[in-house]
């Protein structure tokens, strides 16, 4: 493995390890509530304290999302977001930040329709570091996972409470970057897990992989982030951030407070992650 070039994800993880703290991984939906505001949010995330960015590719039928991200996807699509625009936003971000990792997250169909080879090539060129595709289990690795790895993009897998010791090696086989532990059974933005359960699950996953384990689902506040950060390599927050966007909209349109609402919450979460250091 040492012959692989160091990716932005690996470099960022190593840096945080040296600092002795967990990562804050933030999710926002590309194009929510509109292209310009979304890009402004994206550019403001690292300064507010985000260590790794998950950028959601909106989809009409996000089967594993709860109401907050469903609504964010609908807002983005209604504002005219497309895959081309999402990749353009990553490129624009990269022009000013060559270190913060960006992971595109979403569902397979928009990628399949864009064309897999074209997608991994354009994503790599735009500065995408990793992919999380919810409806592509390891059984379908030939679809996108292997082409992405060949293009030099990490393929990040979701581990869940149903991933037992028999299943974990299967889902970790072609994964890289980090492991995203979905800490509860359910959709995004609803339930949250108890810190004790998270600790047990993280150590179980770590028995199978050297990859860092980021934990998400249901984390809304700095307090919760601190509790999770004590037991994991990183904390993922998504629904709370897209709700922060939603709460500033007037007649569905961005306002002067939209970007600030997101960065304020990110700053609170970043402080929590730092408090929760092991």
């Amino acid at each position: 493995m040492s012959s692989l070039p160091v990716t932005r994800i690996d470099a960022r993880v190593a840096k945080l390890k040296a600092e002795g703290r967990a990562a804050l991984v933030t999710f926002v939906t590309a194009g929510d509530p509109d292209t310009d505001t979304s890009l402004a949010i994206l550019k403001a995330l690292p300064g507010a304290g985000a260590d790794i960015i998950e950028f959601g590719m909106p989809f009409s039928d996000p089967m594993a999302e709860g109401p907050p991200i469903q609504a964010a996807d609908i807002r983005a699509l209604a504002a005219g977001q497309t895959m081309v625009k999402t990749l353009e936003q990553v490129r624009a971000f990269r022009a000013g930040d060559n270190e913060t990792p960006i992971v595109l997250m979403g569902y397979y169909n928009p990628i399949y329709i864009y064309g897999v080879e074209r997608f991994v090539s354009d994503a790599k060129a735009a500065g995408v570091d990793g992919l999380i595709v919810v409806d592509l289990p390891p059984e379908e690795d030939e679809e996108l996972c292997l082409p992405a790895i060949r293009a030099g993009i990490s393929f990040i897998r979701l581990a869940t409470p149903t991933s037992d010791d028999k299943r974990l090696p299967v889902l970790l086989r072609n994964s890289s970057g980090f492991v995203y532990y979905v800490s509860v059974l359910g959709v995004t933005g609803v339930k949250s897990a108890a810190a004790g359960d998270v600790a047990t699950a993280v150590s179980r996953i770590k028995a199978h992989t050297p990859l860092p384990v980021m934990v998400g689902f249901g984390v809304k506040t700095g307090e919760q982030a601190a509790a999770i950060a004590a037991h994991a390599d990183g904390v993922v927050v998504g629904s709370a951030l897209v709700n922060a966007v939603r709460d500033t909209l007037v007649d569905g349109k961005a306002t002067a407070s939209t970007v600030k609402a997101v960065t304020n919450l990110v700053a609170d979460l970043a402080a929590g992650v730092r408090r929760g250091r092991k």
Partner: peptide
């Protein structure tokens, strides 16, 4: 055995559901 009819079919579901 993997559920394919030509290029169609398959198992495109969230990991939570795969063991089941």
């Amino acid at each position: 055995e993997r559920g394919h009819f030509g290029i169609f079919g398959g198992r495109y579901v969230a990991e939570t559901l795969m063991p089941l």
